[in-house]
């Protein structure tokens, strides 16, 4: 089984946060989802490549709730347990679109650099 990061503050938190936010938005875009389900979905979707630090996941969820990107409601799970379900708001959907576009451009730009075949010309 994969293990999570034990430390709450990883050095590349800035990058991680932005990435985490967009992944959360994508996760809840499928429908109301509690925090555990969000973590599980991201893990399984990335084939366990991306380990979500639970200590960072919840602050991100709450922050996005306060910003109005997602909405929260208490509901019961299939096992009749109370859980907090997050849902994408209209504002959140808009945000997801923007973030996804910029992520694509970023990723392809980095990819172009990494796989470049043209040698820089030395003057």
């Amino acid at each position: 089984m994969p293990t999570s990061h034990a430390n709450g503050a990883s050095p590349d938190l800035g990058l991680l946060q932005g990435t985490l936010d967009v992944m959360i938005l994508k996760a809840v875009s499928w429908g109301p989802m509690h925090g555990f389900a969000v973590a599980k979905w991201i893990r399984s979707t990335t084939d366990d490549v991306l380990q979500i630090d639970d200590g960072a996941l919840y602050p991100a969820l709450h922050r996005m709730e306060h910003r109005g990107l997602i909405d929260a409601d208490w509901d019961l799970t299939e096992n009749k347990r109370r859980a907090k379900y997050y849902r994408l708001t209209a504002k959140g959907r808009q945000e997801l679109r923007v973030r996804a576009t910029s992520w694509d451009r970023y990723a392809s730009a980095v990819s172009k650099v990494i796989h470049a075949t043209v040698q820089p010309s030395v003057s």
């Binding site: 509690h34 555990f36 919840y58 799970t77 347990r81 109370r82 859980a83």
Partner: peptide
């Protein structure tokens, strides 16, 4: 609320 949310996460993972 915070307590409930976090303990749900740990319980769900345990299950």
């Amino acid at each position: 609320d915070v307590d409930t949310e976090l303990s749900f996460h740990v319980d769900a993972r345990t299950e």
